[in-house]
Nucleic acid binder design. Structure first.
Lengths: 255, 255
DNA sequence: CTTGACTCTAACCTTAGGTCATACCCTATA
DNA sequence: TATAGGGTATGACCTAAGGTTAGAGTCAAG
Protein backbone atom coordinates (compact mmCIF):
# COMPACT_ATOMS: atom_id res chain seq x y z
CA UNK A 1 0.00 0.00 0.00
CA UNK A 2 2.95 2.30 0.62
CA UNK A 3 4.80 1.75 -2.56
CA UNK A 4 7.11 4.57 -3.35
CA UNK A 5 10.54 5.22 -1.95
CA UNK A 6 11.76 8.79 -2.09
CA UNK A 7 13.64 8.19 -5.28
CA UNK A 8 10.78 6.43 -7.02
CA UNK A 9 8.30 9.09 -6.12
CA UNK A 10 10.74 11.78 -7.11
CA UNK A 11 11.29 10.23 -10.51
CA UNK A 12 7.59 9.65 -11.00
CA UNK A 13 6.77 13.26 -10.30
CA UNK A 14 9.88 14.75 -11.83
CA UNK A 15 11.24 16.42 -8.72
CA UNK A 16 14.41 15.89 -6.75
CA UNK A 17 14.77 13.82 -3.61
CA UNK A 18 15.82 16.97 -1.85
CA UNK A 19 12.51 18.52 -2.73
CA UNK A 20 10.66 15.67 -1.07
CA UNK A 21 12.86 15.95 2.01
CA UNK A 22 12.06 19.62 2.11
CA UNK A 23 8.34 19.16 1.66
CA UNK A 24 8.42 16.60 4.43
CA UNK A 25 10.24 18.86 6.85
CA UNK A 26 7.95 21.78 6.15
CA UNK A 27 4.88 19.57 6.49
CA UNK A 28 3.69 20.07 2.95
CA UNK A 29 3.96 16.41 2.01
CA UNK A 30 4.63 13.83 4.70
CA UNK A 31 5.41 10.20 3.84
CA UNK A 32 2.63 7.87 4.86
CA UNK A 33 5.10 5.69 6.71
CA UNK A 34 8.63 5.62 8.02
CA UNK A 35 10.49 2.32 8.10
CA UNK A 36 12.52 1.25 11.08
CA UNK A 37 15.55 2.79 9.44
CA UNK A 38 13.57 6.03 9.03
CA UNK A 39 13.25 5.52 5.29
CA UNK A 40 10.34 7.46 3.85
CA UNK A 41 7.58 5.54 2.11
CA UNK A 42 4.79 7.20 0.18
CA UNK A 43 1.43 5.84 -0.89
CA UNK A 44 -1.05 6.79 -3.57
CA UNK A 45 -2.61 9.56 -1.53
CA UNK A 46 0.77 11.20 -1.32
CA UNK A 47 1.34 10.85 -5.04
CA UNK A 48 -1.97 12.53 -5.61
CA UNK A 49 -1.19 15.30 -3.20
CA UNK A 50 2.16 15.81 -4.84
CA UNK A 51 0.43 16.22 -8.18
CA UNK A 52 -1.73 18.92 -6.67
CA UNK A 53 1.28 20.60 -5.14
CA UNK A 54 3.09 20.61 -8.46
CA UNK A 55 0.06 22.05 -10.18
CA UNK A 56 0.07 25.08 -7.94
CA UNK A 57 3.83 25.26 -7.90
CA UNK A 58 3.75 25.43 -11.67
CA UNK A 59 1.54 28.47 -11.24
CA UNK A 60 4.29 30.06 -9.15
CA UNK A 61 2.38 29.86 -5.91
CA UNK A 62 4.67 29.98 -2.88
CA UNK A 63 4.76 26.67 -1.07
CA UNK A 64 3.23 28.05 2.09
CA UNK A 65 0.24 29.22 0.16
CA UNK A 66 -0.05 25.80 -1.46
CA UNK A 67 -0.13 24.27 1.98
CA UNK A 68 -2.93 26.64 2.92
CA UNK A 69 -4.89 25.74 -0.16
CA UNK A 70 -4.51 22.01 0.22
CA UNK A 71 -4.95 21.77 3.96
CA UNK A 72 -7.81 24.17 4.27
CA UNK A 73 -10.61 23.00 1.98
CA UNK A 74 -12.60 26.09 2.91
CA UNK A 75 -9.88 28.18 1.31
CA UNK A 76 -11.35 30.47 -1.29
CA UNK A 77 -9.61 29.14 -4.32
CA UNK A 78 -11.31 31.45 -6.75
CA UNK A 79 -10.11 34.46 -4.87
CA UNK A 80 -6.61 33.05 -4.52
CA UNK A 81 -6.41 32.36 -8.21
CA UNK A 82 -7.76 35.75 -9.16
CA UNK A 83 -5.30 37.50 -6.91
CA UNK A 84 -2.52 35.44 -8.34
CA UNK A 85 -3.69 36.23 -11.83
CA UNK A 86 -3.46 39.93 -11.12
CA UNK A 87 0.03 39.52 -9.76
CA UNK A 88 1.08 37.65 -12.87
CA UNK A 89 -0.35 40.32 -15.13
CA UNK A 90 1.54 42.98 -13.20
CA UNK A 91 4.74 41.02 -13.66
CA UNK A 92 4.00 40.75 -17.32
CA UNK A 93 3.45 44.45 -17.66
CA UNK A 94 6.71 45.14 -15.90
CA UNK A 95 8.46 42.82 -18.32
CA UNK A 96 6.95 44.72 -21.21
CA UNK A 97 8.40 47.92 -19.83
CA UNK A 98 11.78 46.31 -19.38
CA UNK A 99 11.81 44.94 -22.91
CA UNK A 100 10.88 48.38 -24.18
CA UNK A 101 13.76 49.93 -22.31
CA UNK A 102 16.13 47.33 -23.66
CA UNK A 103 14.88 47.91 -27.19
CA UNK A 104 15.50 51.62 -26.88
CA UNK A 105 18.94 51.00 -25.49
CA UNK A 106 19.72 48.61 -28.31
CA UNK A 107 18.64 51.08 -30.95
CA UNK A 108 20.76 53.69 -29.28
CA UNK A 109 23.77 51.41 -29.13
CA UNK A 110 23.46 50.16 -32.66
CA UNK A 111 23.18 53.65 -34.09
CA UNK A 112 26.40 54.60 -32.40
CA UNK A 113 24.60 56.88 -30.07
CA UNK A 114 26.03 58.12 -26.85
CA UNK A 115 25.41 56.06 -23.82
CA UNK A 116 28.09 57.23 -21.51
CA UNK A 117 27.55 60.40 -19.60
CA UNK A 118 31.16 61.25 -20.30
CA UNK A 119 30.36 61.57 -23.97
CA UNK A 120 28.04 64.43 -23.21
CA UNK A 121 30.98 66.38 -21.89
CA UNK A 122 33.40 65.43 -24.58
CA UNK A 123 36.89 66.68 -24.04
CA UNK A 124 36.13 68.05 -20.61
CA UNK A 125 38.36 66.85 -17.77
CA UNK A 126 36.65 64.29 -15.65
CA UNK A 127 36.93 66.15 -12.37
CA UNK A 128 35.50 69.36 -13.78
CA UNK A 129 32.68 67.48 -15.36
CA UNK A 130 31.87 65.82 -12.05
CA UNK A 131 31.82 69.15 -10.29
CA UNK A 132 29.62 70.66 -12.97
CA UNK A 133 27.16 67.87 -12.77
CA UNK A 134 26.95 68.03 -9.03
CA UNK A 135 26.42 71.75 -8.95
CA UNK A 136 23.92 71.56 -11.76
CA UNK A 137 22.01 68.93 -9.87
CA UNK A 138 21.85 71.10 -6.81
CA UNK A 139 20.79 74.08 -8.86
CA UNK A 140 18.31 72.56 -11.26
CA UNK A 141 17.32 69.45 -9.48
CA UNK A 142 18.79 66.03 -9.93
CA UNK A 143 15.91 64.63 -11.90
CA UNK A 144 16.10 67.51 -14.37
CA UNK A 145 19.74 66.85 -15.09
CA UNK A 146 19.19 63.14 -15.45
CA UNK A 147 16.26 63.70 -17.79
CA UNK A 148 18.27 66.11 -19.88
CA UNK A 149 21.20 63.73 -20.11
CA UNK A 150 18.80 61.00 -20.97
CA UNK A 151 17.48 63.05 -23.84
CA UNK A 152 20.93 63.99 -25.04
CA UNK A 153 21.99 60.38 -25.02
CA UNK A 154 19.47 59.69 -27.74
CA UNK A 155 21.22 62.08 -30.09
CA UNK A 156 23.92 60.70 -32.34
CA UNK A 157 27.40 62.09 -32.23
CA UNK A 158 26.92 63.59 -35.66
CA UNK A 159 23.80 65.39 -34.56
CA UNK A 160 25.59 66.64 -31.52
CA UNK A 161 28.39 67.98 -33.69
CA UNK A 162 25.84 69.77 -35.88
CA UNK A 163 24.20 71.24 -32.80
CA UNK A 164 27.49 72.55 -31.55
CA UNK A 165 28.30 74.09 -34.88
CA UNK A 166 25.00 75.89 -35.15
CA UNK A 167 25.39 77.25 -31.67
CA UNK A 168 28.89 78.42 -32.41
CA UNK A 169 27.69 80.32 -35.45
CA UNK A 170 25.09 81.97 -33.29
CA UNK A 171 27.75 82.83 -30.77
CA UNK A 172 29.75 84.56 -33.44
CA UNK A 173 26.77 86.69 -34.32
CA UNK A 174 26.09 87.39 -30.67
CA UNK A 175 29.71 88.42 -30.12
CA UNK A 176 29.21 91.19 -32.64
CA UNK A 177 26.28 92.49 -30.56
CA UNK A 178 27.90 92.46 -27.15
CA UNK A 179 27.89 96.22 -27.08
CA UNK A 180 24.10 96.29 -27.47
CA UNK A 181 21.33 96.00 -24.91
CA UNK A 182 20.73 92.33 -24.01
CA UNK A 183 17.03 93.12 -24.16
CA UNK A 184 17.21 94.63 -27.62
CA UNK A 185 15.19 93.15 -30.41
CA UNK A 186 18.17 91.90 -32.40
CA UNK A 187 19.75 90.15 -29.46
CA UNK A 188 16.47 88.65 -28.37
CA UNK A 189 15.94 87.31 -31.85
CA UNK A 190 19.24 85.48 -31.75
CA UNK A 191 18.46 84.14 -28.29
CA UNK A 192 15.19 82.91 -29.66
CA UNK A 193 17.05 81.12 -32.41
CA UNK A 194 19.18 79.44 -29.76
CA UNK A 195 16.07 78.11 -28.11
CA UNK A 196 14.68 76.93 -31.38
CA UNK A 197 17.87 75.09 -32.24
CA UNK A 198 18.21 73.42 -28.87
CA UNK A 199 14.57 72.45 -28.86
CA UNK A 200 14.86 70.98 -32.30
CA UNK A 201 17.38 68.56 -30.83
CA UNK A 202 15.96 67.90 -27.45
CA UNK A 203 12.45 69.24 -27.32
CA UNK A 204 9.30 67.28 -26.70
CA UNK A 205 11.15 64.23 -25.52
CA UNK A 206 10.91 64.76 -21.81
CA UNK A 207 7.20 65.08 -21.37
CA UNK A 208 7.01 68.78 -20.61
CA UNK A 209 5.05 71.45 -22.37
CA UNK A 210 6.70 74.38 -24.07
CA UNK A 211 6.68 76.70 -21.11
CA UNK A 212 7.90 74.06 -18.75
CA UNK A 213 10.60 73.28 -21.23
CA UNK A 214 11.66 76.91 -21.37
CA UNK A 215 11.68 77.17 -17.65
CA UNK A 216 13.78 74.12 -17.12
CA UNK A 217 15.67 72.55 -19.95
CA UNK A 218 15.94 75.55 -22.22
CA UNK A 219 17.04 77.77 -19.43
CA UNK A 220 19.50 75.20 -18.34
CA UNK A 221 21.06 74.53 -21.68
CA UNK A 222 21.14 78.01 -23.02
CA UNK A 223 21.74 80.08 -19.95
CA UNK A 224 23.78 77.89 -17.68
CA UNK A 225 27.36 78.33 -18.66
CA UNK A 226 28.22 75.08 -17.00
CA UNK A 227 27.00 73.69 -20.27
CA UNK A 228 29.54 75.49 -22.40
CA UNK A 229 30.94 72.17 -23.52
CA UNK A 230 27.63 71.56 -25.16
CA UNK A 231 26.84 74.95 -26.56
CA UNK A 232 30.42 76.03 -26.91
CA UNK A 233 30.53 79.51 -25.37
CA UNK A 234 33.81 81.15 -26.25
CA UNK A 235 34.31 83.58 -23.41
CA UNK A 236 33.10 84.46 -19.99
CA UNK A 237 32.02 87.88 -21.18
CA UNK A 238 29.86 86.40 -23.89
CA UNK A 239 28.52 83.89 -21.43
CA UNK A 240 27.43 86.62 -19.07
CA UNK A 241 25.94 88.58 -21.91
CA UNK A 242 23.93 85.62 -23.11
CA UNK A 243 22.89 84.85 -19.59
CA UNK A 244 21.51 88.37 -19.19
CA UNK A 245 19.77 88.25 -22.54
CA UNK A 246 18.33 84.84 -21.76
CA UNK A 247 17.02 85.97 -18.41
CA UNK A 248 15.08 88.69 -20.19
CA UNK A 249 13.93 86.26 -22.85
CA UNK A 250 12.63 83.72 -20.39
CA UNK A 251 10.87 86.44 -18.45
CA UNK A 252 9.13 87.56 -21.64
CA UNK A 253 8.15 84.03 -22.58
CA UNK A 254 6.84 83.20 -19.16
CA UNK A 255 4.34 86.03 -19.19
CA UNK B 1 35.31 66.16 -3.38
CA UNK B 2 33.98 63.14 -1.55
CA UNK B 3 30.66 64.47 -0.57
CA UNK B 4 28.18 61.77 0.17
CA UNK B 5 27.85 59.78 3.34
CA UNK B 6 26.13 56.42 3.04
CA UNK B 7 22.82 57.82 4.06
CA UNK B 8 22.98 60.80 1.75
CA UNK B 9 23.94 58.71 -1.22
CA UNK B 10 21.29 56.16 -0.34
CA UNK B 11 18.59 58.81 -0.19
CA UNK B 12 19.81 60.44 -3.36
CA UNK B 13 19.64 57.20 -5.27
CA UNK B 14 16.63 55.76 -3.50
CA UNK B 15 18.28 52.66 -2.10
CA UNK B 16 18.91 51.51 1.43
CA UNK B 17 22.11 51.92 3.39
CA UNK B 18 22.26 48.18 3.59
CA UNK B 19 22.33 48.01 -0.16
CA UNK B 20 25.38 50.26 -0.26
CA UNK B 21 27.09 48.18 2.40
CA UNK B 22 26.38 45.12 0.31
CA UNK B 23 27.60 46.65 -2.91
CA UNK B 24 30.74 47.69 -1.11
CA UNK B 25 31.44 44.26 0.30
CA UNK B 26 30.85 42.58 -3.03
CA UNK B 27 33.03 45.11 -4.80
CA UNK B 28 30.29 46.46 -7.00
CA UNK B 29 30.47 49.99 -5.62
CA UNK B 30 33.31 50.95 -3.33
CA UNK B 31 33.37 54.29 -1.49
CA UNK B 32 36.07 56.58 -2.80
CA UNK B 33 37.33 57.11 0.72
CA UNK B 34 37.08 55.75 4.21
CA UNK B 35 37.45 58.17 7.14
CA UNK B 36 39.57 57.34 10.11
CA UNK B 37 36.46 55.92 11.79
CA UNK B 38 35.89 53.75 8.68
CA UNK B 39 32.94 55.84 7.58
CA UNK B 40 32.25 55.46 3.88
CA UNK B 41 32.42 58.56 1.71
CA UNK B 42 31.36 58.59 -1.90
CA UNK B 43 32.19 61.05 -4.64
CA UNK B 44 30.59 61.94 -7.95
CA UNK B 45 32.12 59.04 -9.79
CA UNK B 46 30.45 56.71 -7.37
CA UNK B 47 27.10 58.42 -7.75
CA UNK B 48 27.43 58.01 -11.48
CA UNK B 49 28.35 54.38 -11.18
CA UNK B 50 25.43 53.81 -8.86
CA UNK B 51 23.11 55.28 -11.46
CA UNK B 52 24.46 52.83 -14.00
CA UNK B 53 24.07 49.98 -11.55
CA UNK B 54 20.48 50.90 -10.86
CA UNK B 55 19.75 51.11 -14.56
CA UNK B 56 20.79 47.53 -15.09
CA UNK B 57 19.26 46.41 -11.84
CA UNK B 58 15.98 47.86 -13.01
CA UNK B 59 16.33 45.60 -16.01
CA UNK B 60 16.56 42.63 -13.65
CA UNK B 61 20.20 41.93 -14.36
CA UNK B 62 21.87 39.99 -11.55
CA UNK B 63 24.38 42.11 -9.69
CA UNK B 64 27.33 39.98 -10.72
CA UNK B 65 26.51 40.52 -14.34
CA UNK B 66 26.23 44.24 -13.73
CA UNK B 67 29.71 44.17 -12.28
CA UNK B 68 30.94 42.40 -15.40
CA UNK B 69 29.32 44.97 -17.62
CA UNK B 70 30.61 47.97 -15.75
CA UNK B 71 34.11 46.72 -15.00
CA UNK B 72 34.81 45.25 -18.38
CA UNK B 73 34.33 47.96 -20.97
CA UNK B 74 35.03 45.44 -23.70
CA UNK B 75 31.92 43.59 -22.58
CA UNK B 76 29.56 43.14 -25.49
CA UNK B 77 26.64 45.10 -24.22
CA UNK B 78 24.52 44.55 -27.28
CA UNK B 79 24.79 40.82 -26.91
CA UNK B 80 24.13 40.99 -23.18
CA UNK B 81 21.04 43.07 -23.71
CA UNK B 82 19.76 40.87 -26.50
CA UNK B 83 20.23 37.76 -24.41
CA UNK B 84 18.48 39.42 -21.55
CA UNK B 85 15.69 40.47 -23.85
CA UNK B 86 15.16 36.90 -24.92
CA UNK B 87 15.08 35.77 -21.32
CA UNK B 88 12.49 38.39 -20.50
CA UNK B 89 10.32 37.35 -23.42
CA UNK B 90 10.52 33.74 -22.31
CA UNK B 91 9.41 34.78 -18.84
CA UNK B 92 6.57 36.69 -20.38
CA UNK B 93 5.47 33.74 -22.43
CA UNK B 94 5.54 31.55 -19.39
CA UNK B 95 3.37 34.05 -17.58
CA UNK B 96 0.93 33.96 -20.46
CA UNK B 97 0.71 30.21 -20.11
CA UNK B 98 0.18 30.48 -16.39
CA UNK B 99 -2.54 33.07 -16.77
CA UNK B 100 -4.22 30.83 -19.34
CA UNK B 101 -4.12 27.92 -16.96
CA UNK B 102 -5.55 30.03 -14.20
CA UNK B 103 -8.31 31.26 -16.47
CA UNK B 104 -9.24 27.73 -17.38
CA UNK B 105 -9.22 26.72 -13.77
CA UNK B 106 -11.39 29.68 -12.86
CA UNK B 107 -13.91 28.87 -15.55
CA UNK B 108 -13.92 25.31 -14.37
CA UNK B 109 -14.42 26.31 -10.77
CA UNK B 110 -17.12 28.84 -11.50
CA UNK B 111 -19.09 26.42 -13.65
CA UNK B 112 -19.06 23.84 -10.93
CA UNK B 113 -16.85 21.57 -12.94
CA UNK B 114 -14.84 18.78 -11.45
CA UNK B 115 -11.47 19.66 -10.17
CA UNK B 116 -10.75 16.83 -7.80
CA UNK B 117 -9.52 13.59 -9.21
CA UNK B 118 -11.82 11.85 -6.77
CA UNK B 119 -14.80 13.26 -8.61
CA UNK B 120 -13.77 11.33 -11.68
CA UNK B 121 -14.30 8.12 -9.77
CA UNK B 122 -17.47 9.14 -8.03
CA UNK B 123 -18.75 6.66 -5.52
CA UNK B 124 -15.72 4.43 -5.82
CA UNK B 125 -13.88 3.66 -2.58
CA UNK B 126 -10.74 5.62 -2.24
CA UNK B 127 -8.37 2.69 -1.95
CA UNK B 128 -9.71 0.97 -5.05
CA UNK B 129 -9.50 4.15 -6.98
CA UNK B 130 -5.87 4.63 -5.96
CA UNK B 131 -5.03 1.13 -7.05
CA UNK B 132 -6.80 1.59 -10.35
CA UNK B 133 -4.99 4.76 -11.08
CA UNK B 134 -1.63 3.31 -10.26
CA UNK B 135 -2.14 0.25 -12.39
CA UNK B 136 -3.56 2.30 -15.21
CA UNK B 137 -0.52 4.53 -15.08
CA UNK B 138 1.78 1.56 -15.37
CA UNK B 139 -0.23 0.10 -18.19
CA UNK B 140 -1.01 3.16 -20.27
CA UNK B 141 1.67 5.49 -19.20
CA UNK B 142 1.43 8.10 -16.51
CA UNK B 143 1.18 11.03 -18.84
CA UNK B 144 -1.71 9.42 -20.69
CA UNK B 145 -3.71 9.01 -17.53
CA UNK B 146 -2.99 12.52 -16.39
CA UNK B 147 -3.96 13.91 -19.78
CA UNK B 148 -7.19 11.94 -19.75
CA UNK B 149 -8.08 13.07 -16.28
CA UNK B 150 -7.25 16.58 -17.29
CA UNK B 151 -9.70 16.33 -20.14
CA UNK B 152 -12.39 14.78 -17.99
CA UNK B 153 -12.03 17.51 -15.44
CA UNK B 154 -13.22 20.01 -18.01
CA UNK B 155 -16.55 18.22 -18.32
CA UNK B 156 -19.39 19.31 -16.08
CA UNK B 157 -21.06 16.87 -13.78
CA UNK B 158 -24.21 17.03 -15.87
CA UNK B 159 -22.27 16.14 -18.99
CA UNK B 160 -20.61 13.29 -17.19
CA UNK B 161 -24.00 11.98 -16.09
CA UNK B 162 -25.22 12.17 -19.69
CA UNK B 163 -22.14 10.31 -20.85
CA UNK B 164 -22.72 7.58 -18.33
CA UNK B 165 -26.33 7.22 -19.33
CA UNK B 166 -25.56 6.94 -23.01
CA UNK B 167 -22.95 4.33 -22.30
CA UNK B 168 -25.35 2.36 -20.14
CA UNK B 169 -27.94 2.29 -22.89
CA UNK B 170 -25.28 0.98 -25.22
CA UNK B 171 -24.35 -1.64 -22.67
CA UNK B 172 -27.93 -2.82 -22.56
CA UNK B 173 -27.94 -3.27 -26.30
CA UNK B 174 -24.59 -5.01 -26.16
CA UNK B 175 -25.83 -7.37 -23.47
CA UNK B 176 -28.45 -8.61 -25.89
CA UNK B 177 -25.70 -9.49 -28.34
CA UNK B 178 -23.34 -11.30 -26.02
CA UNK B 179 -24.10 -14.59 -27.76
CA UNK B 180 -22.90 -13.15 -31.09
CA UNK B 181 -19.43 -12.89 -32.59
CA UNK B 182 -17.58 -9.88 -31.12
CA UNK B 183 -16.35 -9.20 -34.65
CA UNK B 184 -19.81 -9.25 -36.17
CA UNK B 185 -21.11 -6.21 -37.94
CA UNK B 186 -23.82 -5.43 -35.41
CA UNK B 187 -21.50 -5.60 -32.45
CA UNK B 188 -18.84 -3.59 -34.22
CA UNK B 189 -21.41 -0.93 -35.00
CA UNK B 190 -22.26 -0.57 -31.34
CA UNK B 191 -18.58 -0.45 -30.41
CA UNK B 192 -18.17 2.29 -32.97
CA UNK B 193 -20.97 4.21 -31.34
CA UNK B 194 -19.16 3.88 -28.02
CA UNK B 195 -16.11 5.48 -29.57
CA UNK B 196 -18.14 8.23 -31.09
CA UNK B 197 -19.83 8.99 -27.80
CA UNK B 198 -16.64 9.01 -25.79
CA UNK B 199 -14.88 11.10 -28.39
CA UNK B 200 -17.71 13.58 -28.43
CA UNK B 201 -16.95 14.23 -24.78
CA UNK B 202 -13.22 14.00 -24.71
CA UNK B 203 -11.93 14.00 -28.24
CA UNK B 204 -9.59 16.48 -29.80
CA UNK B 205 -8.63 18.00 -26.53
CA UNK B 206 -5.41 16.21 -25.90
CA UNK B 207 -3.48 16.95 -29.04
CA UNK B 208 -3.56 13.53 -30.66
CA UNK B 209 -4.86 12.58 -34.06
CA UNK B 210 -7.73 10.18 -34.53
CA UNK B 211 -5.66 7.02 -34.75
CA UNK B 212 -3.52 7.97 -31.81
CA UNK B 213 -6.68 8.72 -29.94
CA UNK B 214 -8.08 5.30 -30.76
CA UNK B 215 -4.91 3.61 -29.76
CA UNK B 216 -4.62 5.36 -26.45
CA UNK B 217 -7.56 7.15 -24.97
CA UNK B 218 -10.31 5.33 -26.76
CA UNK B 219 -8.84 1.96 -26.02
CA UNK B 220 -8.37 3.01 -22.46
CA UNK B 221 -11.81 4.31 -21.84
CA UNK B 222 -13.79 1.80 -23.72
CA UNK B 223 -11.84 -1.38 -23.23
CA UNK B 224 -10.16 -1.00 -19.89
CA UNK B 225 -12.62 -2.22 -17.33
CA UNK B 226 -10.78 -0.35 -14.67
CA UNK B 227 -12.82 2.51 -15.96
CA UNK B 228 -16.13 0.91 -15.27
CA UNK B 229 -17.01 3.72 -12.91
CA UNK B 230 -16.92 5.97 -15.90
CA UNK B 231 -18.55 3.84 -18.53
CA UNK B 232 -20.60 1.81 -16.13
CA UNK B 233 -20.03 -1.76 -17.22
CA UNK B 234 -22.56 -4.00 -15.53
CA UNK B 235 -20.76 -7.32 -15.43
CA UNK B 236 -17.43 -8.97 -15.93
CA UNK B 237 -18.78 -11.07 -18.77
CA UNK B 238 -19.96 -8.02 -20.64
CA UNK B 239 -16.68 -6.32 -19.89
CA UNK B 240 -14.74 -9.20 -21.42
CA UNK B 241 -17.06 -9.28 -24.40
CA UNK B 242 -16.63 -5.58 -25.03
CA UNK B 243 -12.92 -5.90 -24.60
CA UNK B 244 -12.77 -8.57 -27.28
CA UNK B 245 -14.98 -6.59 -29.61
CA UNK B 246 -12.95 -3.46 -29.02
CA UNK B 247 -9.70 -5.25 -29.74
CA UNK B 248 -11.07 -6.24 -33.10
CA UNK B 249 -12.41 -2.75 -33.70
CA UNK B 250 -9.12 -1.04 -32.96
CA UNK B 251 -7.29 -3.53 -35.19
CA UNK B 252 -9.65 -2.68 -38.03
CA UNK B 253 -9.28 1.04 -37.49
CA UNK B 254 -5.53 0.90 -37.28
CA UNK B 255 -5.19 -0.60 -40.70
C1' DC C 1 30.89 -10.79 2.96
C1' DT C 2 31.52 -7.26 0.15
C1' DT C 3 29.99 -4.08 -3.34
C1' DG C 4 26.98 -0.73 -5.19
C1' DA C 5 22.84 1.61 -4.88
C1' DC C 6 19.95 3.81 -1.80
C1' DT C 7 18.82 6.55 2.27
C1' DC C 8 19.30 9.40 6.40
C1' DT C 9 20.56 13.94 8.74
C1' DA C 10 23.11 17.97 8.94
C1' DA C 11 25.40 21.86 7.22
C1' DC C 12 26.62 25.26 4.06
C1' DC C 13 25.56 27.88 -0.36
C1' DT C 14 22.70 30.58 -3.51
C1' DT C 15 19.95 36.29 -4.41
C1' DA C 16 19.48 40.71 -2.84
C1' DG C 17 19.05 42.50 0.63
C1' DG C 18 15.85 43.24 5.73
C1' DT C 19 16.26 43.31 10.45
C1' DC C 20 18.28 43.41 14.66
C1' DA C 21 22.30 43.90 18.25
C1' DT C 22 26.27 46.01 19.87
C1' DA C 23 29.51 49.30 19.78
C1' DC C 24 31.59 53.39 18.09
C1' DC C 25 31.51 58.34 16.18
C1' DC C 26 30.06 63.09 15.71
C1' DT C 27 28.05 67.33 16.95
C1' DA C 28 24.69 70.52 19.00
C1' DT C 29 22.91 72.02 23.17
C1' DA C 30 22.54 72.70 28.29
C1' DT D 1 32.27 69.79 29.27
C1' DA D 2 28.96 66.21 29.64
C1' DT D 3 25.37 64.26 27.45
C1' DA D 4 21.69 63.22 24.20
C1' DG D 5 20.42 62.12 19.60
C1' DG D 6 21.46 60.66 15.26
C1' DG D 7 24.70 58.54 12.04
C1' DT D 8 27.73 54.66 11.22
C1' DA D 9 30.25 49.95 11.24
C1' DT D 10 30.33 45.19 11.73
C1' DG D 11 28.39 40.88 12.37
C1' DA D 12 24.79 37.61 12.68
C1' DC D 13 20.59 35.66 11.45
C1' DC D 14 16.54 35.54 8.23
C1' DT D 15 13.99 35.19 3.79
C1' DA D 16 12.44 30.89 -0.81
C1' DA D 17 13.24 26.83 -2.79
C1' DG D 18 16.00 24.05 -3.03
C1' DG D 19 21.50 22.36 -4.75
C1' DT D 20 25.43 20.37 -3.15
C1' DT D 21 28.42 17.95 -0.47
C1' DA D 22 29.76 14.98 3.81
C1' DG D 23 29.50 11.25 6.94
C1' DA D 24 27.08 7.49 8.33
C1' DG D 25 23.71 3.91 8.07
C1' DT D 26 20.71 0.39 5.14
C1' DC D 27 19.48 -2.91 1.72
C1' DA D 28 19.75 -6.49 -1.80
C1' DA D 29 22.60 -9.14 -5.02
C1' DG D 30 26.53 -11.78 -6.17
Amino acid sequence: MDNYSVKKLAQLAGVSVRTLHLYDKMGLLKPSVRTEARYRLYGEKELLRLQQILFYRELDFPLKEIADILDNPAFDMVQALEGHRRALLARKERIDTLVGTIDNTLVTLKNNRMLQVEDLYEGIPRDKMDAWRKEAMVRWGESTILAVEDTLRSITKEEMAALKQELEELNTQLSALMHADPASHEVQQLIDRRYVIVMRFTGGKVGMDRLEYFRKLGELYVADNRYTPVNGLPSMELALFIQAATKHYVAQQSR
